[in-house]
């Protein structure tokens, strides 16, 4: 089943009179349960592509369908609604809310989805257990290491059981050990829950976990290969 389908997507940024074509006609389909890496050099369009799939941004032209729903033309609140229930995010920086505890950070998406107190409690503890952070539930981000913060961020991304989890350079600010741990956890959750993971990265440690690697260059898909080495025919 298709979780995301991008058709002929371009994204052009205008700064003053200067136009930058970040994406130049992308066609890409992400199937349910994939563990996909978007790779490529800086400026190749990885983050832009991730932002479009995550409905954080809108394409200049083309179509982005998430979970069967066309997202181009949705207003800000409609996109927020779509993100709320369908998409989880893990960012490069440890994007936790500094005034909230680990528990409360994971609870926030559940609150936004209107879950009951009992449901929230069960789900938050389940996820903190899964990422090995249950014993630090009451710690605030400044009391956690970078790796611990990123694990909490992964738990938060999974809180609402989203179809799709998007991670932008999730290991960029982590040392090898913590980076491996975070990737192991995500891989495990991918297998256990069937959630789809898409990463933008140029970290070989991340790429080796992927079962599909999409290589971008100058806003175009250069190569789309599966872990078994087969080429895919999206583009």
């Amino acid at each position: 089943m298709e979780v995301a389908k991008l058709t002929d997507v371009t994204r052009i940024y205008k700064v003053g009179q200067v136009e930058t074509r970040a994406l130049n006609g992308i066609n890409l389909t992400i199937e349910s349960g994939e563990f996909t890496s978007l790779v490529g050099p800086s400026g190749s369009g990885k983050t832009t592509l991730l932002q479009l799939i995550g409905c954080l941004d809108q394409p200049t032209s083309g179509s982005v369908v998430i979970n069967g729903k066309e997202t181009t033309g949705l207003n800000r609140n409609q996109r927020a609604d779509l993100r709320k229930g369908t998409i989880g995010f893990v960012f490069q920086f440890f994007a936790l809310i500094p005034t909230l505890t680990a528990y409360e950070n994971v609870e926030m998406p559940l609150l936004l989805n209107g879950k009951s107190a009992a449901e929230r409690r069960k789900r938050v503890m389940e996820l903190l257990e899964a990422v090995g952070m249950a014993d630090r539930a009451n710690n605030r981000p400044d009391q956690l290491s970078g790796g611990q913060q990123q694990r909490v961020a992964v738990a938060r991304a999974l809180a609402t059981n989203p179809k799709l989890i998007l991670a932008d350079e999730p290991t960029a600010n982590l040392d090898t050990e913590n980076g491996e741990q975070v990737m192991e956890i995500m891989k495990k959750l991918n297998k256990e829950t069937g959630a789809t993971f898409v990463f933008a990265t140029h970290d070989p440690r991340v790429i080796k976990y992927a079962n599909r690697v999409v290589t971008l260059q100058d806003g175009l898909i250069l190569k789309d290969s599966q872990a078994n080495g087969k080429q895919r025919g999206d583009q």
Partner: peptide, 16 residues
């Protein structure tokens, strides 16, 4: 600003 971006990314609406 970044925190507002995070809240927005995880689905917090403008009204909230």
């Amino acid at each position: 600003t970044r925190e507002i971006g995070i809240l927005s990314a995880i689905g917090m609406k403008g009204r909230q």
